[in-house]
Write a protein that binds this DNA or RNA. Structure first.
Lengths: 236, 236
DNA sequence: ACCTGAACACCGTTCAAGT
DNA sequence: ACCTGAACACCGTTCAAGT
């Protein structure tokens, strides 16, 4: 469904036939992002490099810098395109404000779980695409519905999305480097109560929880956000 | 203060004099980590590459793989060496358990703030060096002192350190790409209440807080952890 | 056993020179 | 204006061949 635009050299008096070149879609921000998302789904973010993406688009890497200042910006566009598939409006969710909020955050986290390296990139991004802003807005609306004051809601929204992103970055990577899992737990399981009393005390629950742990984290955050006032700014 | 060990070829009957080669410390896990920390402090983690580090040690990159399986492991060793400078014992802190816990977490975060790219690396690492385990242990001991049940403390410790690490990774990077700061806020400040009612409602506090925000986040987490029970595991 | 040169298979970004 | 080849200055990791 691409419009093919073929460059016609000035010295030629008739258009180049379609046969002479394979159809090549014109470069646009959206087109590049779409191809990047395809590459992400097919091979993971590690392969969504400027060079590889350029090859996929049948051009040189320099061409992409016409549309994106750098790779971080490209990743931001990729995130927003992925978010377009999630219905982020408060009305799309069921239950009370708290249940809907957790549902929403879980949907966002699930999206990033599938692409942990994107989550790692997003963590340092301050996304500002329309779909991310819809997500942030919905979180804020739900917190307001729950009677949370604006200041706590503002800081809390950032904290909630931050934890969601960071958890996806952390968890997902672990899954990527799969086999090491048990070996990583070992130094924590073998400690003596004399040397590490706290670890020995808590060791039974140190590696439990799995996915439920994330929902617990959201519960913790929402409970804390609702009751913890932000530091009042100094009066003017 | 390095011991110089010079390889003596079998065909030579007398030792090679020190003059023939510049003093070159022997490679050890600790020695490599020490040089890596020096490089980190001098030029940032971006320059602590296997190749650069090898050049600094006057050898080839392949030599480092005798001591570290990969770069992530090297970063883990670097983190633990940095943590050695912080006194992580519960007795080293003043005040009630809550104040001491926040103090401890702030010290850890401060350490990582100075090296945001290290924080980004640590986020996907599950560190297990002795100093990190001391930190984790102290967090657990303080939570126990506060009467938090073991399960909540175990999950809570992870969540607290996770937020600290992620915040350092996020914040630090922002500071690195300094000038973009104001431009990033723009799309959030200009929203209409019609399109993004939540953002418009909370916009006054969206970018406030600075460093106090992190302490607020720890307050939120501790408050939430103390009152939120973990999901009971299914009975056997 | 410990160490390493060279190779493999790549990177992001810039810039001068296209059309 | 839009696009790009080539160059700049690098990467992590592996492996065969040292000593």
């Amino acid at each position: 469904m691409f419009v093919t635009i073929v460059f016609v050299p000035a010295r030629s008096s008739h258009p180049v036939s379609r046969r002479d070149r394979p159809a090549k879609p014109p470069l646009t921000r959206e087109g590049i992002t779409a191809v990047a998302v395809g590459l992400l789904r097919a091979e993971g973010l590690d392969r969504v490099t400027m060079r590889r993406l350029a090859r996929e688009l049948d051009t040189g890497p320099a061409s992409l810098y016409v549309y994106f200042d750098n790779m971080a910006e490209l990743h931001g566009a990729v995130l927003d395109r992925l978010l377009a598939r999630v219905d982020l409006r408060p009305g799309a969710l069921a239950g009370g404000w708290r249940a809907r909020l957790i549902e929403l955050l879980a949907a966002y986290t699930e999206l990033l779980y599938a692409h942990p390296s994107l989550a790692r990139s997003v963590l340092t991004l301050r996304p500002s695409g329309p779909n991310y802003m819809r997500l942030a807005d919905t979180v804020l609306v739900l917190l307001r519905t729950g009677g949370v004051p604006a200041g706590q809601a503002a800081w809390g929204m950032n904290l909630l999305l931050h934890v969601a992103t960071a958890t996806a970055a952390e968890h997902g990577t672990r899954r990527e480097s799969a086999s090491a899992g048990v070996a990583e737990e070992e130094p924590w399981r073998e400690v003596s109560a004399g040397e590490y009393p706290g670890i020995a005390w808590a060791s039974g629950e140190l590696f439990t929880g799995g996915v439920q742990r994330l929902r617990w984290a959201f519960d913790v955050l929402i409970a804390g956000i609702a009751v913890t006032g932000i530091t009042p700014r100094p009066p003017p």
